[in-house]
Amino acid sequence: MSNILWIIIGMGVVTYLPRLLPMVVLKSKIIPPFVQAVLTNVPYAVLGALIIPSVFIIHTGSLLHITVNDFLFGLIGGGVAFITAFLEWNITWVVLSSIAVLVVYHLFV
């Protein structure tokens, strides 16, 4: 077997383990209420951490090398998503309208 195949298998195993373990171990309901509450909080916090700072550095990848163009790209695309989401549009339309506005923006810049 080639080296790359082993790497893929190894990567697959170490990626699946963190996904699998909590799912089978936490099946029994013996988790203390405080921990349960903390786990319920995860989606809201993780979205904050996933969006910021990444949305402003989509093309450069690091806050240390942030450029005006990249910042504006994220601000406009994210801004359109924020407004359409605030108006409670269906998420697919939120996504498509952000893309559409950025395509138009690209044509002018």
Partner: peptide, 15 residues
């Protein structure tokens, strides 16, 4: 332009 898509989705989910 499509590289905004996942972030737009995250924003659409949280707002």
């Amino acid at each position: 332009s499509m590289s905004i898509a996942l972030y737009a989705m995250f924003i659409g989910l949280i707002v």
